[in-house]
Nucleic acid binder design. Structure first.
Length: 469
RNA sequence: GCUCCCUUCGUCUAGCGGUUAGGACGCGGCCCUCUCAAGGCUGAAACACGAGUUCGAUUCUCGUAGGGAGCGCCA
């Protein structure tokens, strides 16, 4: 049997991080087994579905490179098929018309709740033979009253449900549109889905869907219900926890592989391994090893992983994602050194591409923003002469390379009777405006001769003016 | 309320009857060092509770407590 899984989001908002994890596990399962992965848009709720949300889903999956073999299918385009299957169920007696109004249903539910019962449809229209004039009926599925339904869940194990606890679900609304439950079942059947991997909020719906899918004559798929992802405080993940929209992670400068790597470790592990390439994820993923308990989203660990990926990447491969970050920081990429060189110098001291761009701002802005406290501390009159000597030597340097720059700084320090660090830090402040940057030779090389000489000259006059103690 | 699910360091997790309960993030310390990082070493930090089963429970069973989900003509 060829494995076929699907990701079936409803386009009522952006693609959130929990959805991505579901998509990832479903995709991994398919890829691991050499099967197929389908994208299906569940837009039966026309009111809340938007094209913008569909676009965000497609774009998010594309960014993460979670590729699908079929789709996107749209439930809104399959109405005829649902109507056809509804008719079949009605004819076979597996479904029936229900004329109860919403008001009646609501008040009965209220009574049941008041009595401490599980609010559920009482099945009274099962026996009805004649239509009720003036009422447009819904179609309900006749769920068995007795027996148990066993869900052999891929992640939960065996879960039993008493059929008597299950009520008759609505398949088709009074306006003729299919409900989510019906759409899912018909689609999974038609599309030949063999493994349904989804959030565990659907576990309770599973036995009823199994009955429906069997009544329709489809083979019942295997199910795997994934635990939720919570916010760092243990509450349901929401906007106040920071980014929940995947595309915001791109804007924040995270790499897609890092995000996927982080997500795959939420609820799943392979021994002590933390870093997984895509190929390793596919090869090692085992849905049977997925945890049953919910986990919290920890941005700190994501950042660490992102840095691991930054360090491990070839700088050139990050350029395309880096340039937009430079622009977003209000900087002009053309006013700085080669992007690959900046990435090379910074990738092990940045957690995201965004902060990489921000920390490198002095390479682009001329003159750089000066940190006043750093200036006061490091650019004192005592450093005037060494700085001046260094400026002279650098101006005479005919090879602007890391090695010769390092030699120039070192010899200047020696000749000035000071240690390398005593000179290095003032130079750093002079040319970057701050106290933090890559090694001084790398920094000077990156900045280039013009900027370095200009900035040193400024510092030389500043320290020699007598206005700084 | 009813049904179902979950419970190992702060967090993500390994463990699948006998372990000094391991790793990772974060946090502290030390080393390295021109700053910041990175890297190396290192420290603190967990089996929710109570009964069983067993020679022996983190591990198996049942309760309790605490979390979560579902109970819509939403998905």
């Amino acid at each position: 049997m060829t494995v076929k899984t699907r990701f079936a989001p409803s386009p009522t908002g952006f693609l959130h991080i929990g959805g991505v994890r579901t998509a990832l596990f479903s995709w991994l399962y398919a890829r691991h087994h050499g099967g197929q992965f389908v994208l299906r848009i569940e837009d039966t709720d026309r009111e809340r579905s938007t094209q913008a949300a569909v676009d965000a889903i497609v774009e998010g999956l594309a960014w993460l490179q979670l590729d699908y073999d079929e789709g996107p299918y749209y439930q809104s385009q399959r109405s005829d098929r649902y109507a056809e299957q509804a008719e079949r169920l009605l004819k076979s007696g597996a479904a029936y018309h229900c004329y109860c109004t919403r008001e009646e249903l609501d008040s009965r539910r209220a009574e049941q709740t008041a009595r401490g019962e599980n609010p559920r449809y009482d099945g009274r229209c099962r026996q009805r033979t004649a239509p009720v004039p003036g009422v447009q009926p819904v179609l309900r599925f006749r769920t068995p009253d007795t027996g148990v339904t066993i869900v052999d869940d891929l992640v939960r194990g065996r879960v039993e449900f008493q059929n008597a606890e299950l009520d008759d679900l609505i398949l088709v609304r009074s306006d003729g549109t299919p409900t989510f439950h019906f759409g899912v079942v018909v689609d999974d059947g038609d599309m030949g889905i063999t493994h349904v991997i989804r959030g565990d909020d659907h576990l309770n719906n599973t036995p009823r869907q199994m009955h429906m899918i069997a009544a329709l004559g489809y083979p019942v798929p295997a199910y795997g219900h994934l635990p939720m992802i919570l916010g760092s405080d243990g509450a349901k993940l929401s906007k106040r926890h920071g980014a929940v929209n995947v595309l915001e992670y791109r804007e924040e400068g995270f790499l897609p592989d890092a995000l996927l790597n982080y997500l795959v470790r939420l609820g799943w592990a392979h021994g002590d391994q933390e870093v997984f390439s895509r190929e390793e994820m596919i090869r090692l993923f085992d849905i049977g090893a997925v945890n049953a308990s919910a986990s919290r989203f920890d941005t700190e660990k994501l950042k660490w992983l992102n840095q691991q990926y930054l360090k491990g990447s070839v700088p050139e491969s990050l350029v395309a994602d880096f340039l937009p970050q430079v622009r977003r920081a209000g900087l002009d990429p053309d006013s700085g050194p080669s992007p690959a060189a900046v990435i090379e110098a910074y990738r092990e001291r940045a957690t995201t591409l965004k902060d990489l761009a921000e920390s490198a701002a002095y390479l682009y802005v001329d003159p750089p923003t000066m940190d006043e406290a750093a200036v006061a501390r490091h650019l004192k009159s005592a450093i005037h002469a060494p700085l001046s000597l260094l400026a002279t030597r650098l101006a005479a340097l005919d090879n602007w390379s890391r090695e010769s720059l390092h030699a120039a700084v070192a010899s200047t320090a020696t000749d000035s009777g000071m240690g390398f660090g005593k000179l290095g830090q003032p130079v750093r402040v002079a040319v970057t405006g701050g106290t933090v940057s890559p090694p001084i030779d790398v920094t000077l090389e990156l900045l280039g001769r013009d900027k370095v000489l200009r900035r040193l000259a400024t510092a030389v006059s500043l320290t020699g003016s007598g206005t700084v103690a």
